[in-house]
Design a protein around this nucleic acid. Sequence first.
DNA 1: CGGCAGGCGGTTA
DNA 2: TAACCGCCTGCC
Length: 284
Amino acid sequence: MKNIRELIIEDVKDFDLAQTFDCGQCFRWRRMPDGGYRGVAYGRAAEIRQEASAAGAGIRLVIKVAGGFEKDEDRELAFWRYYLDLDRDYAAIKAELARRDDKIGAAIRAGEGIHILHQETWETIVSFIISQNNNIPRIQGCIEKLAQMFGEPAAEEAWNLPEPKVLAGLTVEELAPVRLGYRAKYLIETARQVVAAGGLPTSDELDGLCGVGPKVASCIRLFGLGDVASFPIDVWVKRVMHEVYGFDEGDVKGMADFASRTFGEFGGIAQQYLFYAIRSGAVE
DNA sequence: CGGCAGGCGGTTA
DNA sequence: TAACCGCCTGCC
C-alpha cells in the first residue's frame, strides 16, 4: 500500500481480531498469511494486525491505513475505536449475560474476543441480501466482485461498494458477472427503493426492502444500525439453541422470546457468542 | 448425480 | 398467518 499511515492502539482487552472478523458479521476483511487482515471500511483501505502488548493483559492493534483517511490522527483513531467497538465494556456484558443465563458460559469462552463492528448500513444491506441461501466464501467473492466492477477505488487494489444510485441504474444482465443468481434482482430493486426514498431506511422500514426478510433485517439492525439487542436467528442459531437450550429447531418464535427475555439489550452480543460457539465446534 | 449453503417471495389453504 | 415450494450458483 502507498501513503501508508500506521496507527497503534495499546492495551485492548476482551478483543480478538480473528474472532471478530471471522464470526460471520462482515465479509470484506480477508486474512493475510501473517495473520493480519486486509479490508475496506467507510472508504478506508486498511491492514490490521494484533500483537501481544508489552505491558498488561490486553493486546496491541496495529492499523495501516492507505488513502482516503482523516489527516487528523486523533479523529482517525477515534474512527477505528468506533468501528471496532473498542469502548464498550465487553467484560461487564459477558459477566451480566452469564449472570442472567447459566448455560451461555461455554459459548462466551469460545468467542470471548468477539466485538460487534459498527459497519456501514448500506454495506450490511447489500451483504445480507447476498448472504441468503449462500455460503461465506461465495458471499465474500460476490461482494468483492461487486466492488471491483461497480465501486469507486479506495486505494490500490481496493474498492468501495457501489452506492445505491449506481446499483439502481443497473440491470440483472449487467450484474450477471457478479454471479449473484436470483439475488441480483433483489439488490437492484432494494437500491431503487433506497434511491426513491431519498435515503437509507430506518430500522422499522427494513422489512419493506426487496429480498429483506426477518433474518436479514435482524442482521442489518445488529451489524449496520448499532442495535445490539437484535438477535438474528439463522440455521446455525437454530442449531445452537437446540443443542444448548433444547428448543425445537422450528420454534423460531420461542427462541426469539427467550432471547428477548433473557439477553435483553445484549441479545446481539449473546447471539454472536452462541453462533461462534456452534460454528467453531465448541458446542455440539 | 442429488443435497446443501448464514432465506425470501409468491402462492395456497 | 402458517405452510409449502422454487430459486442462482458452486461445491461435495
